[in-house]
Design a protein around this nucleic acid. Sequence first.
DNA 1: CCGATTTGACCTCC
DNA 2: GGAGGTCAAATCGG
Length: 330
Amino acid sequence: MAADGVVERARLVSELGRVQDLVRQLDQQLQAPSSAASAELCRRLAHQIVALTDRSIGMVRACPDLLLHSPPSGAGSPLSSDAASDHHAPFSRPTASPKKRKATARWTSQQVRVSAGAGGGAEGPADDGHSWRKYGQKDILGAKHPRAYYRCTHRNSQSCPATKQVQRTDDDPALFDVVYHGEHTCRPAAAAGAGANAKRTQPQHNPHAHAALQGLAARLTVATANANAALPPMTPESCPVRGASSPWSLASPVGSDSNGWCNQGVSPCPLPAGYSDWASDGDLQEVVSAFAHLPPPPPALDNDFVTLDCFGFDHSFTDMDAAMPGLFYP
DNA sequence: CCGATTTGACCTCC
DNA sequence: GGAGGTCAAATCGG
C-alpha cells in the first residue's frame, strides 16, 4: 500500500527539516566569536548534518518515488486517486476542483484516515469519543462509496458546531477518510451522560494505552485540510506502527512554537514543514481510538527515546543534548 | 415515545 | 447546469 511510501516521504521531509535546523545552528555558531567550545560544537553539527543528509539520500535511493509529488502507486481511494489534481494534498477531496462551501468555510477542517472499528468496520470507522448523528448521505462523483454526513448529537442542546464527513476509501474498504469541521463545544461530561441512547462507546480497552495515546495524539501531526500540507497525515494505516516492534516508536511532534520546535512534550523535535497544529481533542480521537487497543509501552523505553525514534533518529543521537546543550532548546 | 437513520428535495457555489 | 452540502419528512428501533 502507498502508506509506506507516504510515511517514508514524511520521514524524508522530517530529516531534511532537521538538516535545515542544524545548518541554522551551525550558521549561528560560525557567526559567534570563535572558541574551543564553539569549534567543537561546529564540528559536531557538521557531523550530524552529514549523517542526516546521508540518510536522506539513502531514503531517496531506496525509494525514488519519494521525490514525486504524488504518492507512489496511489491508494486508489476517491481521496487519493484524484490526488494528481492536487499534489499538495495528502489525500485530497475526490473532486478535481476545490470544494465550494468548505473551501470558503470559516471553520477549521481536518482530515484523518482511520481504520474501521474493531468489530470489522462494516458500518464505519472506529468510535472517536464523540456522539454523532447522521444527517445525510451523498453519492460522490468518482467515488465508489457514498459520503456520510454527521453532526454532533449535541448540536441542538449545546449548539455544538462540530460535523464530520465519513467516506470509505475505494481501495481499502476497511479504511475511512474522515473530515472534521468545526470543534466540539459540547461538554464531554454532558456528552457522556446524555449519550445513554447515543451510539457511542468510550474507547477504554486499555486505560494505560489510551491515556498514553492521548498524550501521543497531542503531539501527533495531521495535515489539515486548509494547510496545503505537502505531507500526509499520520494515521494508523500510514504509520509503520503495525509492522514496528513497538507502536510507541512512532510519535510525531507537535505543539510547536513559532520556530517549529516543540514547546511541550517530553522531547523537542523540529516540526516537519507542511504540518500544522492539531486542534484539540476530538479531532484526534479517530486516530487515538484506532490505537487504543494496543498494548502499553515497554516500561524500559524513556520518552525521549520514543520521540526521537519516531523519526528514525539514530539512537546514538540521544546524547546530543548532553553533547550540545542548547541545540534542541534554543 | 423519543431519538437515530434514511432518503429525496432543496440550497449554495462555481 | 452540475456537484457537494444540508434540510426535513418518513421510517425504524429500543
